[in-house]
Simulated assay, not measured.
Amino acid sequence: MRVLILNADYPRFLTWLYRRTPDLAGAAYATQMAARNASLFGVADFYSRNFAAAGHVAADIHVNNPWMRAAWAREHGLAFEQPPEPGNEAQRRAIPGSLQRMIAPFKPILRPLARKVGLSPRLDAQAEEILLAQIEDFKPDLVLNQDVFHVDARLARRIKGLGRPTLIGQVGIVPSRGEDWSAYDLMISQLLRVVESFRGVGVRSEVVHLAFEPEILERLPPAPERSIDISFVGAVSADHQQRVAQLEAVARKYDLKLYGSGLQNLPASSPLHRCYQGEVWGVEMYQALRASRLTLNSHIDQAGREAGNARLFEATGAGTFLLTDFKDNLHTLFDIGSEVAAWHTADDCLTLIDRYLGNEDERCAIAAAGQARTLSTHTFRRRIEDILRFVS
C-alpha cells in the first residue's frame, strides 16, 4: 500500500529551521525534507518511517512549507511564485491577549467565520494546485491528513477525487460546526469527546493516541547533566488558562524554567516572564527535557477531563520524570504514582514537587518506569498498527 502523510508546521518553527541553515530555502526538495526530519520536531517522519517498516511505501508532505513546495514545483516543471525569504513572511495582526481570553470558549463556533474572513490558516490557490499535483504524482492508496485546517473539508473532497484513496483525518480539537466531513473514511483523535462529536454527525471515528518514536533516543546528542530542577515546555495562551494559573503558582515558589511561546499575551506582572528561556524545537526540546529533574505538563483547556497531549509521551519517552495534570483517563495511559505523577490542584502540584525533588531514588524510579511504558506501548509503530486495523 502507498501511504501519504499530510502535515503542517508552526510558522515560528519554519522560521527557526530555515534561519539556522541560510541556504536551505533554495536547496533541493529532498535536502529540505531531510533537514526537516533531522530536527525531530513534532512527528517529523515518524509515521512514514513506521508505515515503511511495516512493508508499505510512505512519504510526507508539509503542506504549509513554501520553500519545500517551491522546490518540488521547480523540480517537476510547474509554475510557482517565489516565496519570501524565511522570516519575511507576511504576519497576521496579533489579537490582544485579553480578547483571546474572552473568545477562547467560543472558538468551535467562530472557526467557520474566521475561515471566511481570512483569519484561519489555509492554502492559497497555487499551493492547493501544487499539493494536488504532488498527490497525483505519488498515487496514494491511503492519505493521512494531520492538518484539517490547511487541508480543509473542501480540499479533502478534491483529494478524494484523485483515485479515491482511503482518506483519514487526525485532529485533536472539537471540529468546526457545519463542516462537511463526508470525504473522510475515518477521523481519528486522541480525545474521546472529539471522536464522539464526529460520530454525532455520522462520520466514522476512533481514538488513536499520540506517540513517541524510540529512534529519537539514538539520534539525540549525549544526555546533558540534569541541571534544571523544574521545566515546562509549551505555549501559554488564552487557550491554556488553567496551565497559566498552575505555572504561575509554581513560579512563585520554585526556579521554574519555561520554554515556549505566548508570553506576550500575559500581563507584565506575571512571574512567568522571569522564568522564560526562549523557544526550543525538536532536538533542543528533548535536550531541555533530559536536563530536567522534573518536567511539568498541563493540557489545553479544550481537552476537558481527558489526557492525551504530545508532552505525555515526549517527556516520558525521553526518560524524564513527568508531573502532569490529572485526567479521568490518565490511568489508561500510565500507572499514576509509579510511571508518572499527577496533580489535581495548583496546591497539590506544589506538594508533589516538594516530595519528588526531595526524593531522587523515587523520582528516578518513576521516570524509568514511565519511559519503559512509553517505549513498549506508546510508539508510532503501535499507532500505525491501530490505524491499519481500523482501515482493514
Rank of each mutant, 00 (worst) to 15 (best):
M1E: 07
R2A: 00
V3A: 11
N7R: 13
A8N: 11
A8C: 02
L14F: 14
W16L: 03
L17R: 13
L24G: 03
T31D: 15
T31G: 08
M33R: 12
R36G: 00
R36E: 06
N37T: 07
D45L: 05
R49A: 03
N50F: 02
N50I: 06
N50Q: 14
A52K: 08
A54Y: 04
A54K: 13
A54R: 13
H56Y: 09
N65W: 01
N65G: 02
M68D: 03
A71T: 05
A73N: 13
E75K: 07
P84G: 03
P84V: 12
N88E: 15
E89Y: 06
R93F: 12
A94S: 12
P96F: 08
G97V: 07
S98I: 11
S98F: 14
R101V: 00
F106Y: 13
I109V: 15
L110P: 00
G118T: 03
P121D: 13
D124K: 13
L131P: 12
L131F: 08
L131K: 05
L132I: 05
I135V: 15
F138C: 05
K139S: 07
P140W: 09
L142N: 00
L155P: 01
K160H: 13
L162S: 09
I168W: 04
P175W: 03
P175I: 00
D180C: 05
D180K: 02
D180N: 12
I188L: 14
S189W: 11
S189V: 09
V194F: 10
V195M: 01
E196Y: 05
R199G: 12
S205I: 10
E206K: 13
H209V: 00
L210W: 02
A211W: 12
E218A: 15
E225G: 08
I230E: 08
I230A: 10
S231F: 08
V233E: 15
G234T: 05
A235S: 14
D239H: 07
Q242T: 01
V244K: 00
A249G: 05
A251M: 03
D255Y: 02
Y259L: 10
G262A: 04
Q264Y: 11
L266K: 10
P267H: 11
S269V: 12
S270R: 01
P271F: 08
L272T: 04
R274H: 11
Y276G: 04
E279W: 02
W281Q: 02
Y286A: 05
R290I: 04
G304A: 05
E306N: 06
E306A: 05
N309C: 06
R311C: 08
E314L: 14
G317M: 10
G319P: 08
L322S: 04
T332C: 04
F334G: 03
F334D: 03
V340C: 14
D347S: 10
L352F: 02
G358L: 11
N359A: 13
N359W: 10
A365P: 05
A367S: 14
G370F: 09
A372H: 07
S376C: 13
H378S: 09
R383Y: 07
I384P: 06
E385M: 07
E385Q: 14
D386C: 07
D386L: 12
L388W: 06
